[in-house]
């Protein structure tokens, strides 16, 4: 039986990548006032609650013009 702790070194890069996506999205959200739709609260909640999908959806649909 494998222990989760044995796999931890392999899990860390995944967590790091997910954090990169979340943080980039959050920085973008807080640097901009307008979004294609929705408001700041909505996007922050979405990005934080839905790993992976949240930042993807924000950058594709929510990101304003720049």
């Amino acid at each position: 039986m494998t222990q989760i702790s044995d796999l931890l070194p392999l899990l860390i890069p995944i967590i790091v990548l997910e954090l990169i996506l979340v943080i980039t999205a959050l920085i973008h959200i807080f640097r901009h006032k307008t979004y294609r739709f929705g408001n700041r609260v909505l996007w922050v909640v979405l990005v934080l609650c839905f790993q992976l999908i949240g930042p993807v959806v924000y950058f594709i649909f929510g990101r304003g013009d720049d």
């Binding site: 796999l7 392999l10 899990l11 890069p13 995944i14 990548l17 997910e18 990169i20 996506l21 980039t24 973008h28 992976l52 930042p55 993807v56 950058f59 594709i60 990101r63």
Partner: peptide, 21 residues
């Protein structure tokens, strides 16, 4: 600059790491 390259690379790399785990 639209972050699309970043997202695509990150997501696919995550899949590559996650699937074996």
């Amino acid at each position: 600059r639209s972050y699309k390259a970043l997202i695509l690379l990150c997501v696919f790399i995550i899949f590559g790491m996650m699937s074996p785990l």
